[in-house]
């Protein structure tokens, strides 16, 4: 396959970026999208041009490190992570536009790499159950109904990639936050801190500059782990309850 790639290049956070065009020949449909970029980078290196910086680590769809806007879609045309997207999803002769995640709260560091530290700071504000090592009760002393455990697991599969934010016209992280609120809120272990958790996490979310949710649903459509939109309903319900409780 022969492709025309339009890629965002930006030397560092402080500078202004621009789209650059590259032609790439000899792309195999069996390559992953990131392997295609590896090949481009080898070409650039050979030509004496600095390779394009992009993030990836596990390359098996679970670590959440990769993430590109591909032709305007977070993680591209398939419901999966960028690393699991393969070139057979494209046609010979295609023009592909590749950008970093778009969101004020995820500033660009270089080329296609962004800073998602805001997600860690949201978790710091309550995305956990407070239990020190060694103080846990015997595991079977806590019974969890199977449907609650399954629901908790389904939403706990969030990989924190940020596609939901990148896809959202408001740049909201409500799906990310709702997934954690729902995961911990479904479990008996998570009840003691349920009110303070949602209030503090939402406070941090807004402080970081993420936008509000207006129920557009682009987030869940882009989510490689298919986190359902109703986690945001859960988030709003928990927030309302917490406020009613005087938080």
């Amino acid at each position: 396959m022969k492709l025309t790639l339009k890629i965002w290049r930006q030397p560092n956070a402080a500078s202004t970026g621009a789209m650059h065009t590259y032609e790439l020949d000899g792309v195999s449909p069996d390559m992953s999208f990131l392997e295609m970029l590896d090949v481009l980078n080898e070409d650039l290196n050979a030509k004496g041009e600095e390779p394009i910086a992009f993030d990836s680590d596990c390359r098996e769809g679970i670590c959440g490190m990769c993430g590109l806007m591909i032709n305007g879609q977070a993680h591209g045309p398939e419901v999966t992570t960028t690393c699991q997207l393969h070139m057979r999803s494209f046609e010979d002769g295609d023009e592909i536009v590749i950008e970093p995640w778009r969101a004020d709260a995820f500033p660009v560091l270089k080329d296609l790499c962004v800073d998602r530290g805001a997600f860690d700071r949201i978790i710091q504000q309550g995305g956990y159950i407070s239990v020190n090592t060694g103080s846990a009760p015997e595991a079977h002393s806590i019974q969890v109904p199977k449907d609650a455990a399954d629901r908790a697991f389904d939403v706990a599969t969030c990989i924190g990639c940020g596609a939901c934010v990148a896809a959202c016209p408001n740049g909201s992280a409500s799906l990310f936050m709702g997934a954690k609120i729902t995961h911990l809120g479904e479990l008996p272990q998570g009840q003691a801190e349920r009110d303070s958790r949602v209030v503090n996490m939402v406070g941090q979310h807004d402080h970081e500059g993420f936008g509000g949710c207006t129920n557009i649903g682009e987030c869940t459509a882009a989510c490689p782990k298919e986190i359902p939109l109703d986690v945001i309903s859960q988030l709003n319900r928990d927030l309302r309850t917490a406020l009613r409780h005087g938080h």
């Binding site: 956990y128 159950i129 806590i142 969890v144 908790a152 272990q189």
Partner: peptide
């Protein structure tokens, strides 16, 4: 420890 942290291990119908 992990159960107390909320790790959603697989469970049987009895919980």
């Amino acid at each position: 420890q992990c159960v107390a942290q909320g790790v959603p291990f697989a469970r049987e119908y009895g919980g």
